[in-house]
Nucleic acid binder design. Structure first.
Length: 114
DNA sequence: GCCGTGACTCGCA
DNA sequence: CTGCGAGCCACGG
């Protein structure tokens, strides 16, 4: 994979505010390339330096193999968790397109539109 | 180039 | 609710 992709994914994960979470699919969509699996691969290999526990699966469950670790950290940050899964409706991160572009390190959306 | 694999997702039974 | 299968994209053998 290209290094820019890796940087983009990690930058977005670091941008997720405390108390919120995002999903692999959302990150992939925000980066605008690859898919959920690519994000998962990036996190597995290079996610040790970012708040990886704020990235969960679409159903609100943490990544397999790190469930306890993630739930522990999420709960400590005040993320709404119920029965082992994050309440996505409440905790999902909804950044504006401009904000996403900002974190990606490049402007892809012009302010003011068209 | 085919095949298996993965920190994924969605639809259907 | 759970499980299964197919689709998904990129990487490594």
């Amino acid at each position: 994979m290209h290094e820019a992709y890796l940087e983009g994914v990690l930058a977005l994960v670091e941008a997720v505010p405390v108390g919120s979470v995002t999903t692999y699919g959302d990150v992939a969509a925000m980066v605008g390339a690859g898919g959920p699996r690519q994000v998962g691969t990036v996190m597995a290999r290079h996610g040790s330096g970012v708040p990886w526990w704020r990235v969960v699966r679409a159903d609100g469950r943490p990544a397999q193999g790190l469930v306890e670790e993630a739930l522990s950290r999420l709960d400590a940050e005040g993320v709404p968790v119920a029965d082992g899964r994050v309440r996505m409706v409440q905790a999902r991160w909804h950044p504006s397109a401009a904000e996403v572009a900002e974190h990606l390190g490049r402007v892809e959306v012009l302010p003011g539109g068209r």
